[in-house]
Computed example of a mutant assay.
Amino acid sequence: MPETPVTDSRFPLITDEALDELRARIGQQFDRPQPHVTEATRDSIRHWALGIGDDNPLWLDDEYARKSRWGGITAPGSFLYAFDRVVSGYVSGLPGVHAMFAGTDWNWRLPIRLGDRIIAKPALKELRDLNSNFSGRSIKQTYNVTFYNQDGDVVCDADSWCIRTQRDVARDRATRETVEPRVWTEDEISEISSRYATYERRADESRYWDDVHEGDVLPELLKGPSTVTSFVCFTQGWGSLYVKAHGQAFDMFRKHPALGIPNALGVPEPPERVHWDNELARAVGVPAAYDYGPERISWLGNLMTDWIGDDGFLRRLNVQVRRHNIIGDLTICKGTVLRKWQEKEDHLVEVAVRCENQNGEQTAIGTAVAVLPSRG
């Protein structure tokens, strides 16, 4: 496939040679980067939960959690993002080609309990050649990651993928249209504050499978408006991909030169700064700094666990990130019940979930499956 011409080449393009080298790694497990979290402690669970704006006492309050069916503190399933950088969007190969996190298909088998020590085993699963309106030639790069607890039990199996995009092509195409970040009025902020104040989760009131019907609409869950502060809050719980400082940062740039993109002062910083640096975000074709994709998927997990209540279990969450959520955007998390059925003793509900911004544009879509208690 021919390379897409650009007016000003600052970054490498996707080549067949680089792709062939990366394809040779499919199916091979590898030494993954050091994870941010290795054990589900009270502190790490709290940092994660509050980083995604989920203050469910099931994750945070010992006494409350002891009275639940779980008998103690557990963690949101999305907490596993903090245990592995690969499932969070870390990719190898194609140096200098941008990686945009695009989705995860989570399949949980066990709850994450306080004290669990979890290790992930990732492997490159698939490379798919795409043609994108955003950046010309692009690649969907998918990893499979299996998570094990200290007893060797599989806690979760996940597929996670990024879209590798050509930064220069995306930048050139982005100049054709301008999107300005949303500026909110004092009255609008007051209304958002009121909606947060009146929101209620299901909590310890059981949601029975018997009472759920196809077409039921979940209560809306707000997140945002997004700010650099909210991105930093998420990063405190998640740990980021490439955020390092001082000698550790320069060690990383020596090992992976394409990660060091000079800032306006000539100092190398990682491509991850698109999440707080408007200039670099525009350089890769996005109108302003934008959120982390795993954050939005975690918000939809928050929507589901709030709706199913303490007695339910979120078994699957398969979400595609579709649009950038830039600084200033408000996200409304929504869900609609698609169907319900039984598998042996389990009573299951499938829900179509989505994130919409203040303009009604869908920024993430997917499905979730939950196990609910039944009166039967």
Rank of each mutant, 00 (worst) to 15 (best):
K125N: 11
K340M: 08
H98I: 07
A24V: 08
T38E: 15
G136Q: 07
I14L: 13
G328V: 02
Y290S: 06
W276E: 10
K244R: 11
L265R: 15
V179S: 00
L314R: 10
P5K: 07
T41Y: 02
R323Y: 05
L303R: 12
G224D: 02
A75C: 09
S193C: 09
A203K: 03
L348C: 13
S206L: 03
D346P: 01
V371M: 15
Y242F: 15
T15M: 09
A18T: 12
V284K: 09
R254P: 00
R23W: 06
W341G: 01
A264T: 12
V369Y: 06
D43S: 11
W299R: 07
R10C: 13
E361D: 10
Y143V: 01
Q29I: 12
A158M: 13
E279H: 12
V321K: 09
V351Q: 03
N278T: 14
I297R: 01
V86D: 01
V169G: 10
A264W: 00
S298L: 03
W238V: 01
R315L: 10
A18S: 15
Q28R: 11
R282W: 00
T331K: 02
R176I: 00
V155T: 04
D153K: 06
S193Y: 12
V353T: 15
R322N: 13
G71F: 05
F253T: 03
T165P: 04
D172K: 06
P268M: 05
L58M: 08
A368R: 11
A289N: 11
N325G: 06
L372T: 06
E205H: 09
A197L: 09
P2K: 14
V319Y: 05
R202N: 09
G224S: 02
N263R: 10
S132W: 13
L124Y: 12
Y290M: 02
S135Q: 04
T38Q: 11
R195M: 10
T104E: 05
T146A: 08
V353G: 12
F134Y: 13
P219L: 13
T38F: 09
T38H: 12
D55S: 14
W307E: 04
A99H: 08
L114Y: 11
A75K: 07
R171L: 02
H347M: 05
I119M: 08
E205C: 01
R176Y: 08
H47K: 08
E205S: 09
F147A: 00
G237K: 01
N357M: 04
F30H: 15
R167S: 15
V169C: 09
E188S: 08
L80H: 09
A82N: 01
I189L: 15
D153T: 00
A258K: 09
T146H: 02
P111F: 12
D168V: 00
W299M: 10
L22P: 10
T229R: 11
D210N: 14
G335C: 12
T146C: 06
D55G: 13
Q320G: 13
E269K: 12
